[in-house]
């Protein structure tokens, strides 16, 4: 009998693992150097002083500015909510076209639907807003459409996954009664995905509130417009006030969204 020592992995496997790690570390170091070649290190070492300076300017917040923020806040909430509605409206058909069990054609329609989803998901709503402001001009409408475009991919992706996970036996049972395709959708698939759909929409609404607070930085309306104006005039106490309002809105919307999702599921 040969003597065996216990080893976690074979020597060959270990060698491959070590070389991969080495390459990975080398890659990281290389990236670091490329990234920082234009960095002015004086600014970095100076940062603590800058931070202290910034802090002293930001505090205390200008509380009286609050009354000028109510209207932008209302706009922000509207951008998020109308944008979510718009996105959901388009996401539903896209999801059904993308799900492999409901798509009319796996070869032609499904790849197109999947591309719409990936394109919408890859591009942040701020970039959509940047584009739309340049196309249709600054304002709430650009913000709403930007939020809508970004939401399509998110909602459609989660929804089509939910559609693909539906119980096939229930669908088979409704098919066996002689139901048409539309009736199968209505009786067998929709009841199964409805809770997931509501949860996804509310979840996205919550994210959209967060994202719509900053769309104004590129001119797409809402409280971000005030933020941009205050930043441009270096009115730091106002900036602090806006941050506080944004933070409060985000926390409240997160709470509402969690409550609603809990109630549905």
């Amino acid at each position: 009998m040969t003597e065996q020592t216990w080893q976690y992995r074979t020597p060959r496997h270990r060698l491959v693992l070590w070389v991969s790690w080495l390459c990975f570390v080398a890659l990281c170091v290389f990236c670091w150097q490329v990234m920082t070649q234009d960095t002015i290190w004086y600014f970095v070492t100076d940062a603590p002083r800058q931070a202290a300076d910034l802090g002293s300017r930001m505090i205390p917040p200008r509380w009286s500015y609050l009354e000028k923020l109510w209207l932008p806040l209302w706009d922000t909430l509207n951008i998020a909510t109308l944008g979510t509605l718009l996105g959901v409206l388009f996401a539903i058909p896209v999801a059904f076209l993308a799900a492999s069990n409901t798509t009319p054609s796996r070869l032609f329609v499904r790849p197109i639907a999947l591309f719409i989803i990936v394109a919408s998901r890859s591009i942040n709503s701020l970039i959509w807003a940047l584009l739309l402001v340049s196309i249709i001009g600054p304002g709430l409408l650009a913000g709403i459409i930007a939020i809508g475009l970004r939401s399509i991919g998110f909602v459609a992706k989660l929804l089509y996954e939910a559609i693909e996970e539906t119980d096939t036996i229930q669908i088979e049972a409704i098919t066996a009664t002689g139901a048409s395709r539309a009736q199968i959708l209505n009786y067998a698939i929709v009841p199964q995905i409805l809770p997931a759909f509501c949860g996804i929409s509310v979840f996205r609404w919550d994210i959209n509130i967060r994202e719509s607070t900053i769309l104004g930085l590129v001119g797409a309306g809402g409280i971000g417009v005030q933020l941009q104006a205050s930043l441009n005039t270096l009115a730091w106490p106002q900036v602090t006030m806006i941050f506080i309002v944004i933070l409060a809105t985000v926390v409240i919307s997160e709470w509402v969204s969690a409550k609603v999702r809990h109630a549905i599921i």
Binding site: M35, T39, V44, A47, Q50, R210, E211, I214, L217
Partner: peptide, 20 residues
């Protein structure tokens, strides 16, 4: 609770423009 973009604004003010 702070979005990336807000953190970025603060860091750009502290550390200057650029990828750092």
């Amino acid at each position: 609770s702070l979005q990336e973009i807000i953190i970025a604004i603060l860091f750009v003010t502290m550390f200057g423009f650029g990828p750092f």
